[in-house]
Design a protein around this nucleic acid. Structure first.
Lengths: 334, 334
DNA sequence: CTGAAAGCGCTTACAG
DNA sequence: CTGAAAGCGCTTACAG
């Protein structure tokens, strides 16, 4: 079962391989009407499809882009991937998705692997380390777009949420509802992950703006496996928070588990807002008030930017940072 | 910024390209200790990584497998993809995921595209058409594994849920809870999609076993955009069902929307079980009783099977159908 | 209007 | 132990 090649088509159509290749690339200009027909029939008869690996080697482009997400467990990541995929497919590009699993080592491995596979460009949700690799890509003028996190040391176009605005919206809503003892829980900030840092900063700023005290006991930034204990600490305070902001969907799940098990009623005992509009949030008990990220638009933009960079190779414009607007989805948990 | 090739390494290390290639492929047997060191250093110094496209062309394998899902909107699909990805990455394989979006035409396009890209094998959640393509792959001894649906016309190993058992479990639970007027809603079966057909069949069988009447007005099999109207019809019957089984997560969302808007209380007015253990089901109002598919195991098995087929090319064993056990997650909606 | 030839960056017998 | 040569399946100037 040896695979079909351009040679088989050429022989059947009684032309040279070059001519078949011209046909495949739709360069019909100087091609005889009859020749074209013959090639067309030969291809149909054999069921021939060009070997894209060979084409890629020769053309030096693969029409595929790599996507490395920091952690695919966030609904945020999968939604953005979906949008990227749509745009890419509309433009005849494929994507290969890799999950760095919050590990800089895995990220490094994937960047190298995807570049070795000759991806035409990379969209990265960076773990924040691997600066050397990022810099190398920039210096080689290799197309990259960063999503979700800022890597300020390096000049790469970036797509992210207006995180401060997101937390401020939440705090504002808490305040309007009359809460004053307001807490926040995020995942760990040890690796200086932009959204967490900015959300925390925005949270404190908002508190200040509303002349509310910043109670450090109400603010937790923890590894996933410590969240449980942190919540327990926070809610057994003699004066626990009346309202809490979940920094992302992973934190949310922990809070929901905790309140459920300990019988804390939302919103009566505790008002809750979550950043990330998790699927089915409106069916929750109670329906969840969330701050939604415009994941679809963010993904589209990331894809459009990488495709544009791939197409206009030479244009070295200024590096842009695009911040997207969050949107509050008011339901019943606050 | 011309990319590095094996030639650059060879020159720097003062050996031939062949020797570098031997090194890259870890064929150290006859290689001088000192030569190896020199090559190693040259590679490190240049930051060289082999061009995998060129390697693939030469080796005629790409170490990547294609995955085509019928509809990526189902949580079922994404969970299985995750498991496939894990196994593949453990084995040095990459995957390219495509979403056929329930369209046989898109599926055809993707199969051709992925084969042209020289994927080493394909895992397909088939739309059910495109028999000619499936047959061609079989006759060419090309590695394929099918997931979720049966394509009986063709000899391809298949992974799917024991669908009848799934519906029977649900009916049994309804019956144990004392319900006798039991309904079921699935998405359309026009294209003879296995799970829907089998679930419907299992549903009717179970009803018969419990000597319950099969009330056709309680059974709906509709396109997504008709579900809403179908529910409205069903629940305005003079004697509507007391319990209903949602055939998948898309149907579930429609039911939840409908009951919410019309004020039907679950489980007091209507008992509900859903096939597919949607994420966060335990936080729903009320916590949802579901029939879970072992998506993780199913994905793992699919990946293992395709890798095995890729590795032992010649072995043409009998074609196996693997049915996986569903599991009931009893919560409070029934 | 069509074909012969070179080359993309590797790998793999084979010679020495 | 190492190197020269052929070839994977295409594309692309270039010649005619």
């Amino acid at each position: 079962m040896k695979p079909l090649t351009i040679k088989d088509v050429a022989e059947l159509a009684n032309v040279s391989k070059s001519t078949v290749s011209q046909y495949l690339n739709k360069r019909y200009e100087y091609m005889g009407e009859e020749t074209r027909k013959r090639i067309e029939h030969a291809i149909a008869e054999l069921g021939y499809h060009p070997n894209i690996v060979a084409r890629s080697l020769r053309r030096k482009t693969t029409s595929t882009i790599g996507v490395i997400v920091a952690n695919i467990l966030h609904a945020f990541s999968t939604e953005i991937i979906r949008a990227i995929e749509d745009v890419c497919h509309e433009n005849g590009f494929h994507i290969i998705v890799c999950n760095a699993d919050d590990s800089p080592e895995k990220e490094r491995k994937y960047i190298e692997m995807l570049r070795a596979k000759q991806m035409d460009g990379l969209i990265i949700f960076p773990t924040g380390s691997n600066l050397d690799l990022y810099e190398r890509m920039v210096s080689e003028n290799y197309p990259v777009v960063i999503v979700d996190r800022l890597v300020s040391e390096v000049q790469i176009p970036t797509i992210l949420l207006d995180n401060k605005k997101a937390t401020k919206m939440a705090v504002q809503h808490f305040v309007e509802k009359g809460y004053t003892r307001i807490g926040m829980v995020t995942t760990s900030i040890v690796r200086h992950v932009t959204p967490r840092i900015e959300r925390l900063a925005g949270f404190k700023e908002a508190l200040r703006e509303y002349r509310l005290p910043i109670e450090e006991d109400y603010i937790k930034s923890l590894n996933p496996n410590q969240i449980r204990a942190g919540l327990s600490e926070m809610f057994t305070l003699k004066s626990p928070p009346q309202a809490v902001l979940a920094g992302n969907d992973l934190v949310l799940a922990e809070i929901l588990n905790y309140t459920k098990e300990t019988g804390i009623n939302i919103p009566n005992d505790l008002a809750l807002i979550a950043i990330d509009d998790v699927p089915y949030a409106k069916f929750f008990d109670p329906p969840l008030t969330t701050i939604a990220q415009p994941t679809f638009e963010m993904g589209r933009r990331a894809a459009e930017m990488i495709l544009e960079k791939i197409q206009n190779t030479s244009v070295t414009e200024e590096v842009k940072i695009y911040r997207f607007e969050p949107k509050i989805m008011i339901r019943e948990s606050c």
